Simulated scan of single mutants.
Amino acid sequence: MSAPLRRVYGTAHDDPHPGPQDGHAYVELVGGPLDGELLDVTSWTESERETGAYLITEAGAYGPGGRASYGPRPSVPQIWDWEGDGP
């Protein structure tokens, strides 16, 4: 039995290929409204990767257009933990 396809943040829900692409770098989003999705950080600088991001989401506490804050886990920087929601 194969593992389910992991969805990449920002891909359309009807995208026939919403999963990771070869040659790209991803971090895993853990917790909050984007739990389990992958974020493509291929073109991000090391500084940007260390900072984290506010990602637009419709599923957060502020509804459509709200943001979810995710930042790298200190011990495992390839995993970004949810830090809370914002407008």
Rank of each mutant, 00 (worst) to 15 (best):
S2H: 08
D81R: 11
D22Y: 08
G23L: 07
W44L: 02
W44C: 01
D22V: 13
R73W: 04
R73A: 03
T57V: 02
P64D: 00
D14Q: 12
W44T: 00
T57F: 09
Y9S: 02
G66D: 07
P64Y: 10
Y26E: 06
A3V: 15
L38W: 10
R73C: 12
R73N: 11
D81H: 14
R7S: 01
E58C: 04
V30Q: 15
H17W: 12
R67N: 04
G31M: 06
S69Y: 15
T51D: 01
P64A: 02
V8K: 08
E58V: 03
P87S: 03
P20H: 04
E37A: 00
S47C: 02
Q78S: 11
T42M: 06
L34H: 09
G31P: 13
G52P: 14
H13L: 13
L39F: 09
R6L: 14
V8P: 07
S43I: 06
T57E: 03
T51P: 03
D15K: 11
R49W: 00
H24D: 03
A12V: 03
M1C: 11
P4L: 09
I56C: 05
L5Q: 13
P16D: 10
E28M: 10
D14L: 12
P4R: 04
D14E: 13
H17P: 02
Y9M: 02
E48S: 03
E37W: 05
L55P: 10
L55T: 02
R49K: 15
P64R: 13
P87T: 04
G10E: 07
D40V: 10
Y54Q: 02
P18G: 01
G84I: 00
L38T: 04
M1V: 15
L29E: 09
E83K: 15
D40I: 06
T45M: 02
E50N: 12
G19V: 11
L5A: 06
D85E: 09
G32V: 03
L29N: 08
D40F: 08
G84T: 05
G84M: 01
E58K: 13
E37F: 03
V41N: 06
P72S: 06
G10I: 13
P33D: 07
P20F: 06
G66M: 05
